[in-house]
Design a protein around this nucleic acid. Structure first.
Lengths: 249, 249
DNA sequence: GGACACCTTGACGCCGTCTTGACGCGGAAA
DNA sequence: TTTCCGCGTCAAGACGGCGTCAAGGTGTCC
């Protein structure tokens, strides 16, 4: 048995990577310039977008304006209590909040966490650890997103819902076999781009199938018959002779 | 026989009265009896349901059987590396994981967090702090659980009340076995979406049951017999051959 | 101890899907 | 113009998944 039938992308995580990873935006709130600086440098180096605020009022303002994906918040701010900042944010957003603080006291932590913080790191902190906690916070918040991101791709004649694994055409659902769906998925996840024959074969049929181009011809024909308005004159599944295929919306 | 038959204790632990606060279930994993004891006492006092496991294998087994709302995991287990336990859980569930560890080393924390842990607490820890972090984890996870969203789903022939754990059909309640209910629940919580065979098997039977598709066939048949108007021609529990099943309202 | 409900497991027939080969067409190279 | 290769199309057969049924095993409640 060369290939397995059930080639689902191991469940969950699957559909993230199709479209390039977006930049995550971090809001850093601290009144100590050297800490802000260190964080900004480290975060930018890891391809985060970073905004900074040095007091609570600015933090709330920037958060409202920029909608960060995660907030790193020092509790010792000059103008207002850190817990107040947390409450101010929680009034309207669930953005993950990672608290930084020099206080080790247990009830400080409890107060901050119960006010709505997601994590609490005491200074001095290891940059590696903070970054790992930040990744955890972002990862946790992400799953709400991917469903909406690129879940639906539309053309004039049909609609592909990647999350629900559904294809809609003219008021009815189109039934696709696993292989048909898999092929469609690879193409649709690379809209407008040429996908080589080898890549299609290997992604759908497995690494051993780099040259069986007749498979592609058969299944491309089926996709066109089910989805194209005029299968003989395809407008969305374009053949690039000798190279591969391209999906056009 | 890795799994015990009845996970959901019939009426017991389940989310009780429609709106009221349901009991949260915590899985405590640690090989030091005194720590387990302390945690169990403190958690039970705060109205959590608590399960305990003293090694990694038991942890994975109990998690699969009991579906806790949060896992407190000691990294220093006798039988396997704690990070492996995290990976084992993350293979099929997003349940929040709070790691306990005596190790303060930064890279230990980074490894655990990147493997999928949500929080990392070093021993010795303050019980207040741990409980606050636990509350934060539960609070964060709650909104994602569509428990409240669509607590009742209707079709032409039957009604599913997710909160009350009841299925109504033609003026009478339909009696479902625990496994039948669990399967129905997973499908109904993803209306219109294709749920892969592997996901169904792992969510209902546990992470080790990714390939026993005959279970699915048997239980899907039972669900259809009890709920479909014409079980031979299902309108709500749709088979997507080779891929999975889909619930349509 | 017995009755019962539930879960597991195997067997079997049907049907859809995948594979495979053959054929015609058209464009590019010779 | 001829030749050749790649592509689209079609059809037939093999294969495996799915629905169905029934028996065996296990735990629970009375």
């Amino acid at each position: 048995m060369s290939r397995q039938a059930g080639h689902e992308p191991a469940g969950a995580g699957g559909q993230g990577d199709g479209k390039g990873r977006r930049m995550y935006r971090v809001l850093v709130v601290d009144d100590e310039p050297q800490i802000v600086k260190a964080l900004v440098i480290n975060l930018r180096a890891r391809a985060y977008e970073v905004d900074a605020a040095h007091d609570g009022a600015a933090a709330l303002r920037v958060a409202a304006a920029r909608h960060p994906d995660v907030v790193v918040l020092d509790l010792g701010l000059p103008d207002m209590d850190g817990v107040e900042v947390i409450r101010g944010l929680r009034g309207w957003t669930r953005v993950p909040i990672i608290v930084l603080s020099a206080r080790h006291a247990s009830d400080e932590k409890v107060d901050a966490l119960d006010a709505g913080a997601d994590d609490y790191v005491t200074k001095p902190f290891g940059m590696d650890e903070l970054l790992a906690r930040l990744r955890a916070a972002v990862r946790r918040a992400a799953p709400s997103g991917p469903d909406d991101d690129a879940s639906a791709v539309e053309t004039e004649t049909f609609t592909v819902d990647l999350a629900a694994r559904k294809v809609h055409r003219g008021g009815a659902d189109v039934r696709l076999t696993p292989t048909e769906w898999h092929l469609l998925e690879v193409l649709v996840r690379n809209p407008g781009r040429l996908v080589s024959q080898k890549q299609l074969l290997q992604e759908v049929w497995g690494p051993a199938y780099g040259t069986e181009t007749n498979y592609l011809r058969v299944y491309m024909a089926q996709l066109r018959r089910k989805l194209e308005a005029d299968p003989a004159r395809p407008r969305h599944f374009i053949t690039e002779p000798g190279m591969g295929y391209r999906f056009e919306a």
